[in-house]
Every structure is written in C-alpha cells, then in structure tokens.
C-alpha cells in the first residue's frame, strides 16, 4: 500500500539558513510594529497633554508663580517654543525624543531617563517576584480546580479567585498591611529599607524583607486571573477526544492531568503570563503608593500629582515598551513549546 510521500529532508545548511532568515523577518516585523506603536503613543500623548489643563510654565515655576510677572512668563513660554503652532511644537518635541532626550523631571530635578532607570530597578525585583508567584500559584490552583471541577475544592478556589478579582488592589494592600505590619508586626510598614539607613548599608535580608509584602500583594491580584483562565482551559482539555481516549486506555485523572493536561494548558498559560505583565505594571502603581515603595509606580503618582509632564511622558513610553516586550516574549515562546508551529511551518515550505 502506498505511503504518502513526505518532502525530502533538506540539507542541514539550507535549513539553518532558512531559520536565520525567518528569525530576521520576525525581528524586522516586530521592530517595525514597535516603531509604529511608539509613534502612535507619541501622537496620543502629545495631543492629550496639549489639551490637558496643565500649564507647563506654571508647573515649572510652581509656588513662586506669584513673584513672576506676566512678561517673564511669556518670555519663558517663548524660549520653550510654546508660542509656536501645534505642528511645529510636535515635530520639535518628536525630534528631541528621537535623539533620546526625554527632558528633565521637575519632581526629581534629574534627567527623565535616569529617574526611570533607577526607579525601574527597584520595581523590577518586586515585579519579578510577583510575576513568578502569581504565575506558579495561579497555574497550580487553576489546575487543581479544573481537575476536580464541580467539587467543593473547586468551589473554594473559585470563590477565592472571584473575591480577589473583584477586590481593588489598594484595598488588598491596606488589608495585608494591617494584618502583617500592624497586627503581627512581621513586615515593615513602608519603604524599601529601614528608615535612617544609608542605601549602601542595607543588607540583602532587609531589602527582601521590605520587598516581600508589596510583591505578595501584587501577586495575589494576578493569581485570580491566571487561576480562572487555567481552570477553564483545563476543563476544555479534559473534555477533549484525546482525554476520552486516555480514559479508555485506563489512565487515571491525575496521570491525565500530568501527561496531557499540563502540556496542553501550557501555551495559553504562557500567553496569559506575559500578557499579565501589563496588569502587574498597572497594579504596581497602586501597590507602591500604599507601601510607599520607591519604585516606578510611585514615581508615576508623584509625577501625576505634581504635573511633571516630561516624567509622565517618559513613563508612558517606557510602559508601552515594557508591555510590548512582554508580548513579544510570548510570541517567541510559542514555537519553542508548540511543535505544530515549530515543525508545521517547515513542512509546508
């Protein structure tokens, strides 16, 4: 009986060349899209800020406004090009951004790029811990709930997830602060280090100690989402034909979850995990504010409250970049995990 013929194996070198080409095309496309995204973000940011009630001159001078005459104000406005038409201002501003000049933060009195770099370093550890915790716990709880869907364990986990999904971040943060920092006194109330200690004298343990509660708060918020999605996906997998066949082979539930369930929920879980970066980033604004943790989120709040336009614009750009990188990483993970994408593409060529 004739077997359907498979295409001949290509010589290895050609295959490698093709792979490199595919990768280059992928990177090129991604960079092009990133460029378009950033231009769109730039236009929106500029238009919105032009329409906002913040007067840049007033924001710059601050409390000394009373001592400065209208003429001097006009002079500053002229020097900054504020008297120019909209398009001139926009192109001038875009030119500066393209050269990497994000301006100087009014609140911190340092270049915006420096402020973002320093603050993001502080936030990064917190985000990383929260991201890993919420991913692992969410996956574990979601898998458990999905495997025993309908049982009391599933109900408890779902109740927990719905409650958390509905709870505002700052409220959860306050609650944890009250329990762990005020009642039990096992966590610090605020900040990234004990008060009165110079940053170079802070030990790793003190650092972790201060990091833990904000990171936990942030992860608790993320868990709900990942749990519910994982649960749903696992239920779908457990109703599939291949699980029915596994049952017919005499496989038990836990081995089905182990051999087929985890494998098949991994792809959506990873997508979700990387997509959750944006939510974590958003959540960190509130969490850092409540814990007075000096990260990027806290800088955002300060910038917003004190009309620090350059800093806000910088953070908008940075967060767009951050979320975009997260999603791109998820895209890159697909072909590694899913053989249908990895091998399917080669076969069709």
């Amino acid at each position: 009986m004739p077997i359907k013929r498979r295409p001949e194996r290509q010589p290895e070198k050609q295959l490698v060349n093709r792979r490199v080409n595919t990768l280059l095309i992928f990177v090129g496309q991604k960079l092009l899209r990133l460029g378009l995204l950033l231009i769109a973000v730039a236009i929106f940011t500029f238009v919105l800020l032009s329409l906002s009630p913040i007067d840049p001159v007033q924001a710059y001078i601050g409390a000394d406004m009373m001592q400065i005459s209208a003429d001097q104000q006009a002079l500053i406005a002229e020097r900054w090009g504020l008297d120019q038409p909209f398009w001139n201002r926009f192109l001038d501003w875009l030119g500066q951004i393209l050269q990497g000049n994000l301006g100087v933060s009014l609140v911190f009195n340092r270049p915006v790029s420096e402020v973002i770099a320093a603050r993001f370093q502080a936030s990064l550890q917190m985000l990383a811990i929260a991201w890993l915790l919420s991913g692992l716990l969410g996956l574990a709880l979601g898998t458990l709930a999905g495997a025993v869907a309908g049982s009391w364990i599933d109900r408890v986990i779902r109740l927990y997830a719905y409650t958390l999904a509905a709870a505002p971040t700052f409220w959860v943060a306050l609650l944890l602060l009250i329990v762990f920092a005020v009642s039990w006194r096992i966590a610090p109330v605020c900040c990234a280090a004990p008060p009165g200690v110079l940053s170079q004298n802070v030990t790793v343990w003190q650092h972790l100690h201060h990091l833990l509660l904000p990171a936990m708060t942030l992860s608790i918020i993320g868990i709900a989402n990942i749990t519910l999605h994982t649960r749903q996906k696992l239920i779908e997998v457990l109703h599939s034909d291949y699980v029915l066949f596994a049952l017919a082979q005499g496989e038990n539930l836990w081995n089905i979850v182990r051999y087929h369930g985890l494998r098949n929920i991994l792809l959506p879980a990873i997508t979700l995990q990387f997509a959750s970066l944006s939510e974590l980033f958003g959540g960190s604004v509130l969490v850092e504010q409540v814990f007075a943790y000096p990260g990027l989120g806290e800088a955002t709040v300060q910038g917003a409250l004190r009309s620090d336009v350059p800093l806000l614009v910088g953070i908008v750009f940075f967060s767009a970049l951050f979320v975009y990188i997260g999603n791109t990483l998820a895209d890159l993970a697909y072909p590694i995990i899913d053989p249908r994408i990895r091998l399917g593409g080669q076969m069709n060529r």
């Binding site: 291949y242 066949f245 017919a248």
Partner: peptide
C-alpha cells in the same frame, strides 16, 4: 478511536 484527533496533539 476514529481519528488522529484522539491522540494528544502536543505529544
């Protein structure tokens, strides 16, 4: 089973 759809697609 009826078809290859009864095998785990990722294994």
């Amino acid at each position: 089973p009826q078809s290859v759809g009864y095998l785990d697609p990722l294994m």
